[in-house]
């Protein structure tokens, strides 16, 4: 066991979770490479890796939760968690920045260049206007309109931001019922959002001829909304965990960092969506 001194540093005992996680990622990478290059057996290796990763996540988070509930963390540890979560979210912001940058660059630079006078030598027929799948691919597709599902989804996510804030407020007031109801509403709104998102993808493929392979429009559209959707999924799963922990009676009015971390993450996902709504769907 590690030793915890009141007011002192918490010495985490040696742990096998990290190396388990590394083995999982190695297997996933090998399996993934094999899958992408159609080498037999890749799928199984990838699955095995994923299973180990999930096992590791349960084990690792379980340990931390036990430590936390066991009162081993002091104010300083709490502060460390806050710093780390903020910087982690910053790194996520930069990840999305790469894709927003790609969208910006394609629209503002490369497409107009492809349509300019010199490039008539290569692409005599091409007229650059957004949305575009580029000069080579058949351009018959429709972009996703902003004011249908996306607007509804905006509304859903914004409301979920409100409900999670309500849950936080209730927790601070020691109102457990409000906490659980607020969280439940947030989780439901999150999954509803995802449901609509899936519906929208099906619609895009089936009716709009808008696919991942639809030139740079399809690429940026699906990669941006896709990674966002993936983050919503993660956030919703984490919220669900928090919901169950709340039901079990975890968290107190002044000691609930895990809750706050997930709430921060949820707000981050929310803000990314607003940017997506404006730059991917609207303008």
């Amino acid at each position: 066991m590690g030793n915890a001194q009141p007011g002192g540093y918490y010495f985490a005992p040696p742990s096998h979770w990290p190396i388990v996680g590394s083995s999982a990622l190695l297997l996933m990478a090998i399996g993934g490479v094999m899958l992408m290059n159609s080498v037999g057996g890749g799928g199984w290796i990838f699955l095995a890796g994923t299973a180990i990763l999930v096992y590791m996540l349960f084990g690792w988070f379980g340990t931390v939760i036990r430590e936390s509930e066991g009162g081993l963390f002091n104010k300083q540890v709490d502060m460390s968690f806050r710093w780390s979560m903020s910087w982690f979210i910053f790194s996520e912001v930069m990840f999305f920045a790469a894709f927003f940058g790609a969208l910006y660059y394609a629209r503002v630079y490369s497409l107009p260049w492809l349509g300019d006078a010199d490039n008539k030598l290569l692409w005599p027929e091409f007229k650059a206007h957004w949305p575009s799948a580029g000069p080579y691919l058949p351009p018959q597709f429709s972009a996703m309109g902003a004011w249908g599902i996306p607007a509804l989804n905006t509304f859903l996510l914004l409301s979920s931001g409100v409900t999670v804030t309500y849950a936080h407020w209730a927790l601070r007031m020691n109102n457990r019922k409000g906490l659980i109801l607020g969280l439940l509403a947030t989780v439901l709104l999150g999954f509803t959002f995802l449901g609509f998102q899936i519906y929208e993808y099906v619609h895009a493929y089936a009716d709009l001829n808008l696919k991942l392979t639809t030139g740079v429009f399809g690429s940026t559209f699906f990669m941006l909304t896709g990674f966002h959707g993936f983050h919503v999924t993660l956030g919703a799963v984490m919220l669900t965990v928090i919901l169950f922990r709340s039901i079990k009676g975890h968290f107190t009015a002044d000691h609930h960092f895990a809750f706050e971390a997930v709430a921060w993450y949820w707000h981050f996902v929310d803000v990314v969506w607003l940017l997506l709504f404006v730059f991917v769907y609207w303008v």
């Binding site: 992408m36 894709f99 790609a102 799948a133 580029g134 000069p135 080579y136 690429s219 699906f222």
Partner: peptide, 20 residues
């Protein structure tokens, strides 16, 4: 993006699809 251009048919870096 390289990976999806290689295997999943995106066109981030492919002029034919409007990328660069």
């Amino acid at each position: 993006m390289l990976l999806t251009d290689r295997h999943f048919g995106t066109s981030f870096f492919n002029a034919a699809g409007g990328g660069d």
